[in-house]
Design a protein around this nucleic acid. Sequence first.
DNA 1: AGATACACGTGAACC
DNA 2: TGGTTCACGTGTATC
Lengths: 240, 240
Amino acid sequence: MLHQHIHHFEFDMENSQLFQFLAANNPSFFDYSPSNTTMHQSFSTSLEVSEITDTPSQQQRALAAMKNHKEAEKRRRERINSHLDHLRTLLPCNSKTDKASLLAKVVQRVKELKQQTSEITKLETVPSETDEITVLSTGGDYTGDTRLIFKASLCCEDRSDLIPDLVDILKSLHLKTLKAEMATLGGRTRNVLVVAADHKEHSIESIHFLQNSLRSLVDRSTSCNDRSKRRRGLDRRMMH
Amino acid sequence: MLHQHIHHFEFDMENSQLFQFLAANNPSFFDYSPSNTTMHQSFSTSLEVSEITDTPSQQQRALAAMKNHKEAEKRRRERINSHLDHLRTLLPCNSKTDKASLLAKVVQRVKELKQQTSEITKLETVPSETDEITVLSTGGDYTGDTRLIFKASLCCEDRSDLIPDLVDILKSLHLKTLKAEMATLGGRTRNVLVVAADHKEHSIESIHFLQNSLRSLVDRSTSCNDRSKRRRGLDRRMMH
DNA sequence: AGATACACGTGAACC
DNA sequence: TGGTTCACGTGTATC
């Protein structure tokens, strides 16, 4: 192949200059049509004599413009690449990950973070008036943990044995409680639990089991309305 | 200028082919050194006769390789650009924002979201091992409320009359409790309160009063270590 | 040796 | 018209 022996070929002479030279010094070049190429036949028809008799000042201006263009394009590339490098520092990836993969990770990360924050604000612990349960697996797990982490939230009428019932559910599902938040207000309670399942394989089943169990727990709270015996986590006096 | 009249010039013949043609049909070309260019003089020295006598099959293979290369590069560009387009949909920007500005926005957004989530998790209610109190006014108050909203957090050894003491403090400072979170774990408790002061004018004084009061509260917890009489907000059984 | 990724210079298009 | 952005084909390096 031709270029194997042309090492370190720095093409400092612009292609346009190459064409200028060819047009000026070898006009018959464009009449040649190699059979194994698809070069347009209309190519040489638009060439005119006036085009190859530019004054030196015109040529110099064109050359300066080309230089400007070249440098501007280089600055643009550097600007883009510096942002990409910055993104590389913000994500769990080394400096050798290629641009496309990096951008794919960025897309994924932005999505995750957006959803994370919206979920967090949605899972505030102030009880609402409507019964509700949510179970969702925390997306970003960079700890290399093989366990599956859930965030489970339930909001319902408060009752004295809600917590023991909840404990029984978690025990039966072999879930460990990593963190728990509880708020009771106006006779209603909201519990937000962060729980861990030992095996990721049964993640979907665990989620559904947990959802169903919590649903029945909430239903039980609604049916047996024992407001009088309630023991609140937060004293009523705190709410003026 | 030369190219002004060469419209729609589709360079279907690859440059390498151009060079091949030049080398094969116009060997004197490379001896020409335009004075206004920096083309390397060593250019033609590496050209050998064998290079320009490729067999047709070799030329065809090279042509096929070049075509592959061209198409692969196009696929790469499309891959990158599709990710960029995806990012455009995730950020507040139209489809006309240029790549560099888009990536700048992405960098900023990722930073924001990361800090947001880390701040949120920093204010989580799981008790830490070190005593600490924080009082900060919530920056974003879009409710048009004339009241000043605080977020007050304290973490200390748990004791039975911590909540009543806390209530007394809030009462004496004329603060209303909008929201309260509490978690008790391993004998330690963390309370995160959202409280409102009626008049914004005394915001700074209120913050300092509240900080000092909470500080004394925490100190009181540390001195009278009444672990046995403690009544926990979260049952110990929940933590397996 | 073939596939892949990157930087480069260039023509075109849009203000 | 000059400045800026983009897609493209190409040379080169790496695996």
